[in-house]
């Protein structure tokens, strides 16, 4: 029988990748938990909507549901950059859950996404951002003058450490590392570094992550959401909550798998960071908080809550 609601769900992972299959699982859960009243067509990376246009596509309803990467939309919804995790943030899932569910980030984010015609559903905790470099980083001072591919907030953070952030297309990272156009690059996580084969051309991973964890949202077009009766809204909500658990446990496992694979190809960790390095690292991140709070009202609300919670 035909479904009452036909949804299109876009994520940024390739067909057949581990994360891609996880999102496919969410789609299946929504279908089964709604007793087939919602049908979900999953669209993978590059299928119909590009990375940069995803948020706009959910907003306009071209895509019903999306799993965007907020950094790509920093110019459209600045609060997303705070949501994903500013440099220096925590990686403790318990603390993150409290921040989102008890201390009020969910309320602010619902407003922020709501102001642009989207319904914010659930936060997903994913592994953090690491920097891979061609030469080992023995102390923070070694970042001085290094050219590192790092967009947006991460670029600003690295500049505070004396590095020179560079903007490049993702598909040019490999060749740029190989030829030495850049000395290092961030990846959206370890899995991204592995998929990009960066370890073939840069062997050293710095130990301190840029942000403790990354938190990604699931958003739904408001018009489509409003068409759902209460019981279906509850079913979708429940499916996304279950999915959050799966994301957390699976992504940890995949991250360590990716690191193991890269080690087999010669990846080495840079030496352990000293206490002075850790402080310099934290200081470089702290300066960004004020800057982001001053630029956007939702960002300010999020950062105020963050400060209070510490």
């Amino acid at each position: 029988s035909a479904a009452e609601h036909n949804w299109r769900f876009s994520n940024l992972y390739g067909r057949g990748t581990a994360f891609g299959e996880l999102y496919e699982g969410l789609a299946k859960d929504i279908e089964s938990m709604s007793d087939g009243r919602i049908a979900v067509q999953v669209l993978y990376s590059g299928e119909g909507v590009g990375t940069a246009g995803l948020l706009g596509a959910v907003k306009s309803g071209l895509i019903t549901m999306g799993a965007p990467f907020q950094s790509m939309h920093a110019g459209e919804l600045p609060a997303g950059v705070v949501e994903i995790g500013l440099p220096g943030g925590t990686d403790d899932p318990v603390k993150l859950n409290a921040l989102f569910h008890d201390q009020g980030w969910d309320v602010v984010l619902k407003q922020a996404y709501g102001s642009q015609g989207m319904v914010w559903l659930e936060p997903y905790i994913q592994p953090p951002v690491y920097i891979i470099t061609k030469n080992p980083i023995n102390s923070v001072a070694d970042f001085q003058g290094l050219k590192i591919r790092a967009p947006g907030a991460y670029g600003k953070f690295l500049r505070n450490l004396g590095a020179s952030p560079v903007s490049l297309a993702w598909s040019e990272i490999y060749t740029s590392l190989a030829t030495g156009v850049i000395d290092g690059s961030i990846g959206s996580n370890m899995i991204d570094h592995r998929d990009g084969n960066h370890v073939e051309v840069a062997k050293y991973m710095y130990r301190l992550p840029l942000a403790g964890a990354q938190v990604l949202p699931i958003v739904v077009n408001r018009g489509a959401w409003k068409k759902l009766p209460e019981e279906l809204k509850a079913a979708v909500q429940k499916a996304t909550e279950n999915h959050a658990q799966a994301q957390l446990s699976k992504s940890k496992a995949w991250e360590s798998e990716a690191v193991t694979e890269m080690k087999a190809k010669g990846l080495q960790w840079s030496p352990e960071a000293s206490d002075a390095d850790k402080k310099a690292w934290a200081d470089a991140g702290a300066g960004l908080w004020d800057e982001y709070a001053s630029q956007d009202k939702y960002s300010k609300q999020l950062i105020d809550i963050l400060r209070k919670s510490q």
């Binding site: 909507v49 940069a52 246009g53 706009g56 596509a57 309803g61």
Partner: peptide, 15 residues
């Protein structure tokens, strides 16, 4: 609505 998202993907492709 496919037009704006396609514009953002093709006109802003550094490649």
């Amino acid at each position: 609505n496919v037009i704006p998202s396609t514009i953002e993907a093709t006109y802003f492709s550094f490649i």
